[in-house]
Design a binder for these strands. Structure first.
Length: 948
RNA sequence: GGAAGUAUAGCUCAGUUGGGAGAGCAUCGCCCUUACAAGGCGAGGGUCACUGGUUCGAGCCCAGUUACUUCCACCA
C-alpha cells in the first residue's frame, strides 16, 4: 500500500466491478427496503445539494442492503419542461433561430438530441459518487411507460371531474409565453409608485366636495385600458352617493360603474379602486362578484393590443364593450405604455399625484421577468378532494416528516390549496391528451382513435390535439409508482411500494412531495382498498450554501461541482467553469476575483469518500449547511488516517499467524477493551442511522477510529507485537484483523471505496470469503462482547499514561526521554492492574522503571499526577524546575478547588439535599470525596516542594 | 400580517426524558517515537443572544425582547 491515501488510484475500477456483479440490484431476499431518487433534470449536472441527498440515500441503501434487506434504489431523470426547453432555445438563439423557425417536431427532435448528448453527465456524476442505484431500472419521465402512466392519470382524473379546462386568470410568463403555477412565481420586494389618476364622473354627478371627477390610486396605470369598474367600500361615507353611478374611463371613453365592494379599503389610496378583472387577481374576484365584463388589453408578450378582447365574467366572448383601444399604444410594451399613459394623464391635467409605494412584484422563477396575470384557457386539477386524503395521511402519522416541523409547512399549504394549473404553453413535455373538433368541443382520451371510438366521431370530423403540454411536476408526482410499472400491477409495485423514505429538500415539498402524496393516494390502493402512501418517511435536508451562507447559484458564480471536490481542479479551469457562459463581463470579473481569493491554488483532490463523509457529518437535522473546505480537508485526513492504520495492521498481520490455523490465542487487556469499544460503536452507529442522525453516525465512527482505535489500541498492540509471546501475538493479530475488518463493514455505507479497497486485503486474514464488502453482513451489536472489567481496567491504564504525559507535556520533557516513576498510595486493585499492564504502561508512557513505595518509604522531590487515589511520582532531579512544577500543581489545585466549591455549595444547600433524587446526591457526594482527596494530595505536594 | 427556524469557543457546528459545556478546524508549546507531519503528545480559549419566570438545580422547560434566515399571505 502507498504511504499516503490516494483516492484516484482506488476509486476508478471499483464502481464498475460492483455494477458488473449486479450488486446494485435487489437481492430478492429478505424484507424489502426501497427509495426512489428525486429525479434530477436530465440535461443538468449535479450540484452539492444532489451530492448531499444522494450520499444520504446511498448510505441508507448500503446499510440496509448489508443488513439483509431486499433493497431497491430506483434511479432516473426528469425531462424538466421549462428548464430544458430554455437551454435548447438558447442554443438556437446563438444561431439566430427560434423554436418557431424549426417547428414543433423538429424542435422536439433537437431537444431529444440534446438529452441524448448531455444526459450522461448526471449519471456519470452519480457513478463517481458511488451511488448504488439499480441502473437497469433507470427511468426517464418521458419514457413510454411513464408517459402511459401520465396519460392514464390524466384521463382518469378528467373522467372523475377532477381535471377541467377553463378560461381563468393565470400567472403568465411573457418571456416563455406560458402559464405557470403559483409555486413558480417568486415575489420580490421593490420600490414602486402609486399614481393617483382622475376619472371623470358621468354628467350631473359630483363628489361631496363638488368635484366632477374621482381619484383612483393605482400601481399599474397601463392596465386602466382594461378597467370595467370602480370599487368603493360600502361603508365609505365619502362615496356612498356615487354607488351605482358611472365614470367615463379616460382615453377609451368607456362608461364603467362605481360599485360597493369590501375589497376597497377606506384607508388605502383614495378609497377608490379601479377594477381590471383581466389583469389583476383581486379585481378578477371583484369582477366575478359583480358580474363585470373582463377586458384583456395585453398580448402574449405583455404588449398592448390594438383591439382589446372582451369577455363576460364567466369567460365567454362578450360584446359589452367594443374593445377599441387608442391606436398610439398598440404594440407598446407594458412598461413603456405605463410611462406613456401617465404622461398622457399629466398632459390632460388628470394626474393628481405620484406617491412612493413599497410593493411586492411577482417574477417568473425561471425567466426572471415580471409575471402578468392573463386571461387564458388552461387545464386545472381540482385538488381539494385529493388534498384532504393527503393531509390526513400525515395527520395520522402514516407519513412522517423528519424533522417534524416541516409537517406544519405541509399542513398550512394543504389547508388552503388552490387548484393546480397543469397546462404549459411549451413544446417539451407530455402533450395533453385532449382533442378539439372544429367547433372547439373538447374530447379527452388516451389517443385520437380512442376519442373517435368513444364519441362516435367519423373520419369526416376533423380533430386537432391540444397544443399544450403538462407541467413537469405532473409526471414527477407519479414517480414512486410510474417507475415501478404502473398502471400494470407489477411485482415491483407489490414488493417495493410504498417506498420507505424520501430524501429531498424543503424547497420542493409543495412542488413535489405534496403532489406525490395526493396523486399516489388517489391512484394506488392496498389489498384492502385503502389509499397507499408513496413513502413512509420524508427526510428533509437543509440547503448547502457557500462559505458565507449565501445560496449557491450560477449567477453568483459560487456553485461547487461535487466532482471538483473529489478530483480537484486548477484555478484557471475553475474560473472558466464559473464564468464561461457569462453574458455580463462585469459580473464575471467579480466572480473571478472572489473565486481566486477563495481558491488561490485551485482545489486539491479529496476523493469521493472524504466528500461523502463530510456531507454525512454535516447532516444535522433541520439546518442549512455552510460549506466549509476545512471540514472536507479534515475528513480527507481522516481517510488518510484510516489508510495508514490499515497499513499498520497489514504490516503486522499479513503473512503472519493471525490465529486462523487454530493455535492458542491469548487476548490482551487492550484486545478485550477494543472489542468492547467496537460493540458500543456499532450500537451507537445503528441508533444514529435508524433515527436519521447521520451527523452522529459519522461522528461515532470518526471518534472510534481515530481516538480509540488509532490513538490507543494500535499503540497498545505494539508492546504485545514486539515483545509478547506467540499466543499473545496471535491474539493481538487476530484482534487487529478482526476489529479492522468489522470496522470497515461498519464504515462502508459512508465510505464505500476506501473500505472496499482495504477490505479486499484484510478479509482473507480473517478467513472471510466474499467478493465485495458491500454484500457482507452489517455488524450487529452484541452486549456479550463487552467485557466490563476490561473496560475499567484499561481506563485505569489510560489515566496512568495520561498522568505521565501531562507532566511530560507541561514540563517540556521529550517523549523520547525514558523516565522512572514511583507510585504512592497504591491500592489492591491498583497493584493488580499494575502487575498485569506493566508492558503497556512502560511502552506508552516511555517508562524505564516503575516502583511502588511502601507507606514507610519517603519519596524524593517529584512532580506528581493522580490516578484515582494513587499518586504517580516523577523524581524531579535534573529534569524538572521547581517553579514550573509548583505552577503546574497550582493550576491543578485551582481547578480542583473551584470544582469542590461548587459541589460543596450544592451539598450544603438543604433544599438540594431534601429534594434532589438520591442518585444525584450520591453522585455529588462521591465527587466531593474524590475532589477532597485530590485536593489534599495536591496541597501536600505543593507544601513538600515549597519546603525544599 | 401569519408561521417556522436559528443565536453555544476565533470559525463551522454537536449538545434527545433539566443534574459534568463538547467536537473539528484555527491558536500556543514540545516532538521526524520503526502506520500516518494529511502526523504524535500536551495546553489555552465560552456571562450558552438578552430579560424575567418555573425548579433544590436551566444551554435545555415557560413568557417576553433583539438579531438573522426562510415559508405563506397581502400590497389601489
Amino acid at each position: 500500500m502507498d504511504k499516503t491515501y490516494n483516492p484516484q488510484n482506488i476509486e476508478s475500477d471499483i464502481y464498475k466491478k460492483w455494477d458488473d456483479q449486479g450488486y446494485f440490484k435487489p437481492s430478492g431476499q429478505g424484507q424489502s427496503y426501497s427509495i426512489v431518487i428525486p429525479p434530477p433534470n436530465v440535461t443538468g449536472s449535479l450540484h452539492m445539494g444532489h451530492a448531499f441527498q444522494q450520499t444520504i440515500m446511498d448510505a441508507l441503501i448500503r446499510y440496509k442492503r448489508m443488513d439483509g434487506y431486499n433493497t431497491l434504489w430506483q434511479v432516473g431523470t426528469d425531462h424538466a419542461g421549462i428548464a430544458t426547453q430554455m437551454v435548447v432555445e438558447r442554443q438556437l438563439e446563438a444561431q439566430n433561430l427560434s423554436r418557431k423557425d424549426l417547428g414543433r417536431d423538429k424542435f422536439i427532435d433537437k431537444i431529444w438530441d440534446w438529452k441524448n448528448h448531455s444526459g450522461g453527465t448526471i449519471t456519470g456524476q452519480m457513478r463517481r459518487l458511488g451511488n448504488s442505484v439499480d441502473w437497469q431500472r433507470e427511468r426517464f419521465t418521458m419514457d413510454k411507460g411513464l408517459s402511459d402512466a401520465v396519460m392514464e392519470v390524466f384521463v382518469t382524473l378528467y373522467e372523475q371531474d377532477l381535471i377541467y379546462r377553463g378560461k381563468r386568470l393565470v400567472n403568465w410568463d411573457p418571456k416563455f409565453h406560458t402559464a405557470i403555477s403559483d409555486l413558480e412565481v417568486e415575489n420580490k420586494d421593490k420600490k414602486g409608485h402609486l399614481w393617483h389618476l382622475r376619472y371623470p364622473l358621468e354628467e350631473g354627478v359630483t363628489t361631496l366636495d363638488g368635484k366632477d371627477y374621482i381619484v383612483v390610486a393605482t400601481t399599474r396605470p397601463e392596465t386602466m385600458l382594461g378597467d370595467t369598474g370602480i370599487a368603493v367600500n360600502p361603508n365609505d361615507e365619502r362615496y356612498q352617493h356615487l354607488i351605482g353611478k358611472h365614470v367615463v374611463l379616460p382615453l377609451v371613453n368607456r362608461r364603467i360603474p362605481i360599485l360597493a365592494d369590501d375589497h376597497a379599503d377606506m384607508e388605502k389610496g383614495t378609497g377608490c379602486v379601479k377594477i381590471t378583472p383581466a389583469h389583476d387577481f383581486n379585481d378578477y374576484e371583484v369582477g366575478k362578484r359583480h358580474q363585470l365584463p373582463m377586458v384583456s388589453v395585453l398580448d402574449a408578450n405583455a404588449q398592448i393590443l390594438a383591439t382589446a378582447e372582451v369577455y363576460t365574467f364567466t369567460g365567454e366572448p362578450s360584446d359589452a364593450y367594443s374593445g377599441e383601444l387608442p391606436s398610439e399604444y398598440a404594440g407598446m410594451d407594458r412598461f413603456v405604455a405605463r410611462k406613456a399613459i401617465v404622461a398622457q394623464f399629466e398632459a390632460m391635467g388628470m394626474l393628481d399625484k405620484i406617491a412612493d409605494n413599497d410593493m411586492t412584484i411577482p417574477y417568473g422563477d425561471r425567466s426572471g421577468v415580471v409575471i402578468e396575470p392573463m386571461l387564458t384557457d388552461q387545464w386545472y386539477v381540482r385538488v381539494a378532494p385529493l388534498a384532504e386524503v393527503a393531509t390526513k395521511a400525515v395527520e395520522d402519522g402514516e407519513i412522517k416528516f423528519v424533522p417534524k416541523q416541516y409537517e406544519n409547512m405541509y399542513f398550512s399549504w394543504m389547508r388552503d390549496i388552490q387548484d393546480w394549473c397543469i397546462s404549459r404553453q411549451l413544446w417539451w413535455g407530455h402533450r395533453i391528451p385532449a382533442w378539439y373538433d372544429q367547433s372547439g368541443k373538447v374530447y379527452v382520451g388516451r389517443d385520437e382513435a380512442e376519442v373517435r371510438q368513444k364519441h362516435g366521431l367519423g373520419e369526416d370530423v376533423k380533430l386537432s390535439q391540444d397544443d399544450d403540454v403538462l407541467d413537469t411536476w405532473f409526471s414527477s408526482a407519479l414517480w414512486t409508482f410510474s417507475t415501478m410499472g404502473w398502471p400494470e400491477q407489477t411485482d415491483d409495485l407489490k414488493t417495493f411500494h410504498p417506498t420507505d423514505v424520501l430524501v429531498t429538500g424543503f424547497d420542493i415539498i409543495f412542488f413535489w412531495v405534496a403532489r406525490m402524496i395526493m396523486m399516489t393516494m388517489h391512484f394506488l390502493k392496498d389489498e384492502n382498498g385503502k389509499p397507499q402512501v408513496p413513502f413512509k418517511t420524508v427526510y428533509v435536508t437543509g440547503l448547502i450554501r457557500d462559505e458565507n451562507g449565501d445560496k449557491m447559484s450560477k449567477s453568483k458564480g459560487n456553485v461547487i461541482d461535487p466532482l471538483d471536490m473529489i478530483d480537484g481542479i486548477d484555478l484557471e479551469t475553475l474560473l472558466n467553469k464559473r464564468t464561461g457562459n457569462m453574458m455580463q463581463p462585469k459580473i464575471a470579473e467579480g466572480i473571478k476575483k472572489r473565486t481566486a481569493k477563495e481558491f488561490p491554488d485551485g482545489i486539491e483532490p479529496h476523493g469521493t469518500d472524504a466528500l461523502r463523509f463530510t456531507l454525512t457529518a454535516l447532516a444535522s437535522t433541520g439546518r442549512d449547511i455552510n460549506w466549509d473546505m476545512k471540514r472536507l480537508e479534515g475528513y480527507r485526513n481522516f481517510c488518510n488516517k484510516l489508510w495508514n492504520a490499515s497499513r499498520y495492521v497489514l504490516m503486522n498481520t499479513e503473512e503472519q499467524d493471525c490465529g486462523l490455523g487454530g493455535g492458542e490465542l491469548e487476548l490482551s487487556l487492550a484486545d478485550k477493551w477494543i472489542l468492547g469499544q467496537f460493540e458500543q460503536t456499532v450500537k451507537a452507529f445503528r441508533d444514529a442511522m435508524d433515527n436519521y442522525r447521520f451527523d452522529m453516525a459519522a461522528q461515532t465512527i470518526y471518534e472510534f477510529t481515530w481516538n480509540q482505535f488509532c490513538d490507543w489500541y494500535l499503540e497498545l498492540t505494539k508492546p504485545v507485537l514486539f515483545k509478547g509471546n506467540e499466543a499473545q501475538q496471535r491474539g493481538t493479530r487476530h484482534t487487529l484483523v478482526n476489529v479492522l475488518e468489522s470496522l470497515l463493514r461498519l464504515m462502508h455505507p459512508l465510505m464505500p471505496f476506501i473500505t472496499e479497497t482495504i477490505w479486499q486485503r484484510v478479509a482473507p486474514l480473517k478467513g472471510v470469503k466474499g467478493d465485495s464488502i458491500m454484500v457482507q453482513p452489517f455488524p450487529q451489536f452484541d452486549q456479550n462482547k463487552v467485557d466490563g472489567d476490561a473496560m475499567s481496567d484499561l481506563e485505569w491504564v489510560k489515566q496512568f499514561i495520561l498522568a505521565v504525559r501531562n507532566i511530560r507535556g507541561e514540563m517540556d520533557i521529550a517523549p523520547s526521554k525514558p523516565l522512572s516513576v514511583l507510585l504512592r498510595n497504591v491500592g489492591e486493585t491498583d497493584l493488580r492492574r499494575l502487575q498485569e499492564n506493566k508492558t503497556f504502561l512502560s511502552g506508552l508512557a516511555k517508562l524505564e522503571q516503575i516502583d511502588v513505595l511502601t507507606d514507610d518509604q519517603s519519596a524524593p522531590m517529584s512532580a506528581t499526577g493522580l490516578v484515582g487515589e494513587m499518586e504517580v511520582l516523577i523524581p524531579m532531579a535534573g529534569l524538572i524546575d521547581k517553579d514550573a512544577e509548583l505552577a503546574r500543581i497550582q493550576k491543578a489545585l485551582d481547578k480542583v478547588t473551584g470544582d469542590l466549591q461548587r459541589v460543596a455549595g450544592k451539598l450544603s444547600n438543604e433544599k438540594f439535599v431534601s429534594k434532589a433524587p438520591e442518585a444525584v446526591i450520591a453522585k455529588e457526594r462521591d465527587k466531593q470525596a474524590e475532589l477532597e482527596s485530590a485536593k489534599a494530595k495536591l496541597e501536600k505536594q505543593k507544601a513538600d516542594i515549597e519546603s525544599l
